[in-house]
Computed example of a mutant assay.
Amino acid sequence: MLESSKNDYKSLRNIVYIAIVFAVVSCITILYTSLFTARLVRILYATVLIGFYFIRFKQRKKTFQLALVFFWMRDVSGIYYEASLGVFFYFGLGTIAYLLLFFKQLKNLMRLKFEAPSIVATGLFTLACFIILFNLKYLLGDASEGSSVIYYFYFLGTSIIVLILLSFYYYYRMGSLRALIFSFAIFSLMISDVSSYFGYYLGVSPLFLITGVFYIIALVLLINFLARPSLISEENRIENDLI
Rank of each mutant, 00 (worst) to 15 (best):
S4E: 06
N14G: 12
I15T: 02
I15C: 07
V16S: 02
Y17N: 00
V21A: 09
V25K: 01
S26P: 00
I30E: 12
I30K: 06
L31H: 12
A38E: 04
R42Q: 13
L44P: 00
A46T: 06
A46I: 03
L49W: 04
F52P: 01
F54T: 02
F54V: 08
F57D: 01
K61M: 03
K61F: 01
A67G: 03
A67P: 02
V69Q: 02
L85K: 00
L93H: 09
T95P: 05
L99K: 07
L101R: 01
F102Q: 05
F103L: 14
F103D: 07
L106D: 07
L106W: 04
K107F: 01
K107Y: 02
M110L: 13
M110G: 05
F114W: 14
S118N: 09
I119H: 14
A121W: 15
A121V: 14
A121R: 15
L127N: 12
I131P: 08
L133E: 09
F134M: 13
N135H: 13
N135D: 10
Y138M: 13
D142F: 11
F155A: 12
L156W: 08
G157F: 13
T158F: 12
I160H: 03
I160L: 11
I161T: 07
I161Y: 06
V162E: 06
L163G: 03
I164M: 15
L165W: 08
L165Q: 11
F168D: 05
Y171R: 14
R173L: 15
F184C: 06
F187K: 03
S188P: 07
M190A: 14
D193N: 15
S196N: 15
Y197M: 12
Y201Q: 10
V204Y: 09
L207V: 12
F208Q: 12
F208R: 11
I210Q: 05
T211A: 11
Y215F: 10
Y215W: 08
Y215V: 02
I217D: 00
A218C: 01
L219V: 04
L221Y: 02
I232D: 01
E234W: 01
N236A: 05
R237G: 02
I238Y: 00
